[in-house]
């Protein structure tokens, strides 16, 4: 099985980090993975996105034309990529930043006011991880041990305190029900 993820939003929202956590989780589970960021000036405050492929087969092109999963953290990203999602795919929307609904009816959509929830919990920069928790839960892939290990690979030892916060954010996302 191959699943292609596109994380899209503003630079600074931690989308590249989300993708890295997911890719590490895939690696720990001995899958084939690739992680490809958008790079360049757009990272400085403009739109940023990150493509992650997790597969049982060797990964071919790391570039994704039609994602199975879109995580949209701003309106331009939803506008740009909504149509590209595969029929039957999944879209996660940060509904505190995107007011409109997804227009398509052939995809599963989850609305999570992640940025608002993150602010209420005192970690306004971890909306990305709230969405990540929800994303893993949607696919029944929220394995606490795996999540912990994957995060451990992505958070450096001197920021160990952030690991707990990231975990907490992911748990809130996992447990969030609309």
């Amino acid at each position: 099985m191959t699943r292609e993820y596109l994380f899209a939003g503003f630079g600074g929202q931690g989308l590249l980090f989300s993708g890295k956590v997911l890719a590490y989780k895939g690696l720990i589970e001995e899958k084939n993975v690739s992680w490809l960021p958008s790079y360049g000036p757009e990272m400085r405050g403009g739109t940023a996105n990150c493509s992650v492929i997790i597969s049982d087969e060797p990964v071919g092109a790391p570039i994704i034309s039609h994602p199975d999963v879109l995580v949209a953290m701003n309106l331009p990203s939803l506008d740009k990529f909504e149509a590209a999602v595969k029929p039957g795919g999944t879209i996660l929307v940060d509904s505190s930043l995107i007011e409109r609904k997804v227009a398509r009816d052939d995809v599963s959509v989850y609305y999570v006011p992640a940025t608002k929830i993150a602010g209420e919990n005192g970690f306004s920069t971890l909306a990305n991880m709230i969405l990540m928790g929800k994303l893993l839960d949607v696919f029944g892939e929220y394995d606490v041990e795996m999540v912990h290990q994957a995060l451990g690979k992505c958070v450096s030892a001197r920021h160990a305190d952030l690991l707990e916060l990231n975990l907490k954010a992911m748990e809130i996302g996992r447990d969030y029900a609309e």
Binding site: K20, A23, L27, N32, V33, S34, W35, L36, P37, Y39, V59, P62, I63
Partner: peptide, 10 residues
């Protein structure tokens, strides 16, 4: 090229 340089893989 820029893609292989920027992408992460195991």
């Amino acid at each position: 090229d820029g893609t292989i340089g920027q992408m992460m893989e195991p």
